[in-house]
Design a protein around this nucleic acid. Structure first.
Lengths: 149, 149
DNA sequence: GTTTGGATTTGTAATGATTACTAATATTAA
DNA sequence: TTAATATTAGTAATCATTACAAATCCAAAC
């Protein structure tokens, strides 16, 4: 039994989630791939390890993890829900050109808000959209070429 | 011709959107209903004014408005995209009990971020989740009742 | 070790939001 | 008025997600 496996198993148990093989593998995947994967990505990649895996199981597992506060659900864009292991609070940036989602640091708790007195806040999400440096470079190149021709 | 109609018409024209009757009515609806409606709500309510209205038209119109920067798309929860007329930047709070989405003031531009140098930011979104004061009251009542019984 | 009951997983069918597509309609310019 | 173009309507298709039921697994009791 690998030490990581054991560690993840107890982590799940401490949240009252029975540590089945599938659940541990999904958790492991999320930790090793903090790139905000979709259900499709998780399912496809884990199929090589668990050939009998069902997509329903991935959905079920992620919903359980979400309820237990283990993962954050990202709904930046429609029709692609993404999942993120909850570590420290950070913001998400989605590049509108290449679609990549990257993290940035932000002290969410320090944000001053007006109009939330009496509200119980459980979850704070921040996401920005725009163009990442890589794509900005490409766009500039294209612009220059178009200018020359 | 009502003055508002004329005003909305020129507003659309200034964004290079041809001011059809349907588009003006959708815009008018969004302005009069800043309650983050879903496509379903917009469609149902406008049907009484435009009986021949198609849901596809509502989708098309909202997508056009979005591209023109007239509306903000809210994807707080999966499977319910909501639309919000863009006025000033504000945060959104979704009550996990009753589902209501309310606004709160926030100076998004003043937020300090680390890790976004070189990024071109076009859109900033903040949403919190939790329980609104109304539902907090109800939950407390239920708790008390359960405690007594 | 076997049995039993409950939890988990699987796979298929259903749901529901969104998009694709095409014919009909409306609008603009000539 | 006519022709060209944009918009709308309506249906069919797509795709992510959920519902459901049967199969499987697992842990505790015997």
């Amino acid at each position: 039994m690998y030490p990581l496996f054991k560690k993840l198993s107890t982590a799940l148990a401490s949240k009252n989630i029975r540590p089945s093989f599938q659940r541990i593998k999904v958790l492991e995947y999320l930790i090793e791939n903090p790139c905000h994967p979709t259900v499709e990505q998780i399912f496809t990649d884990l199929q090589s390890i668990i050939p009998t895996l069902s997509k329903t199981t991935v959905y079920n597992t992620l919903n359980i993890f979400h309820k237990a506060g283990l993962v954050r659900v990202l709904n930046i864009e429609d029709n692609e829900t993404r999942y993120d292991i909850i570590t420290e609070t950070h913001g998400h940036f989605k590049c509108e050109e290449c679609g990549t989602i990257s993290n940035f640091n932000i002290d969410i708790d320090s944000i001053e808000t007006d109009g939330l007195s009496g509200f119980k806040v459980n979850d704070r999400n921040i996401y920005f959209k725009g163009v990442c440096p890589k794509c900005l470079l490409n766009i500039k190149h294209i612009d220059r070429k178009e200018h020359i021709s």
